[in-house]
Nucleic acid binder design. Structure first.
Lengths: 207, 207
DNA sequence: TCGAGAATAAAACGATCGTGCTATTTTGTC
DNA sequence: GACAAAATAGCACGATCGTTTTATTCTCGA
């Protein structure tokens, strides 16, 4: 049960190294403006040597998104599964997502926040995959909210979807404001907003 | 007091036509990937003829942001000034911003949402200007919140900054989700979230 | 350790980028 | 309606883009 996956061949290892660099750079420069040459320079490889691992820039972009998703799972989803189902897990998901943004797992913030804006109006397999991954995150959070409603911990007069929308809004806005204004206190603000919102949905239930 | 500014020379008119096209395209393709050649094609001009209006791509980008800001003022700020100071104006600002997003004044959504993500890690005068314009919007909204607090319409145990953060989060998230998932109902959700949040801050005051 | 196959590199391709230079056309004023 | 000035176009530049082709180096199981 080692957290680090051992990669057998050298090809797989360098491929992984490329993807970590690509994901980091993509959150800062963008997934499309990140050129093969630029990425090759950053990884100390030749353009063609790097290119051979993916076959096309589009495949590289998809592989990068795939890798970023695995990081998100490792940093947010997996630790939140330690919290009991219901309200604690809802909070854990929001809190860990804010933590993942706060400690800059990717230097440019949330990988999917950056790339989804970039690709939202650029049809193709890259956009499709990013949308799918984003949907799966929101569905996961929504499912956790539903469980908290079914257990009676959260008010169910408001749909799980709308609660999810509000909760994720705070994290997205914090990520955006931090990278635009450089003010780390937005994360505290987002945590407070999240906590108070969950609290208000709990109190209403008690009344 | 004509709403439409009359432009005297032909140069000023074509410059304006270029900027409207540039702002539209920038929200869909991005402000940096939007090339001079692409923009020239869209406006039916030659590359060099268009280029001469700005002198550099950077100047074109700044002029485009400037134009987008004037649109935002016209579509959001100005109509909200019709509402009385205090809570009604806070609501009007949020509501008109959601309306501006909903009816797609820019085809790719909020100009500043798109471009700020794109330029957040790209230092230079373009980024600086976008940041400044965003700050002025948030300051304006925050000021309206403060007035509502001073008049006793909104609870002032929470800072105006934090209230502003929450309110703008809903609009930003709605814009993002709409352009990623294509679901127009997010705007209703954002309106409901905004209204309920303002309501809860009012009720708390009454108690 | 040797040899097949994987991994990487070098060089070149056409296309497009932002930008400068030089004409040519168009505009607005006397 | 002539004429200076403004506006636009044509063309070329070096650079960089994604990609292909060809050659070289490295890896790792038999």
């Amino acid at each position: 049960m080692d957290k680090t996956i051992v990669l057998k061949t050298k090809g797989e290892r360098t491929r992984q190294a490329i993807l970590t660099t690509a994901a980091d750079l993509a959150t800062k420069e963008g997934l499309e403006p990140l050129s093969i040459g630029r990425l090759a320079e950053a990884t100390g490889m030749s353009k063609s040597g790097l290119f051979a691992h993916f076959g096309s820039k589009e495949e590289l972009q998809i592989a990068t998104a795939e890798y970023a998703a695995s990081v998100f799972v490792e940093e947010v989803i997996a630790p939140a599964r330690a919290a009991p189902k219901g309200l604690p897990r809802v909070w854990a998901l929001c809190d860990h997502k804010l933590g993942y943004l706060e400690r800059q797992v990717f230097p440019g913030g949330c990988f999917f926040a950056s790339t989804s804006v970039e690709f939202s109006h650029r049809p193709g397999p890259v956009r499709d995959r990013i949308e799918q991954l984003l949907r799966s995150w929101l569905s996961y959070l929504e499912h956790a909210v539903e469980q908290a409603q079914q257990s009676g911990e959260l008010d169910d007069s408001l749909s799980a979807r709308e609660i999810t929308f509000e909760l994720d809004s705070f994290a997205m806005a914090a990520n955006w404001q931090y990278h635009m204004f450089g003010d780390r206190t937005v994360f505290d603000g987002a945590r407070r907003a999240t906590r108070e919102r969950l609290e208000s949905l709990r109190r209403r239930q008690a009344a």
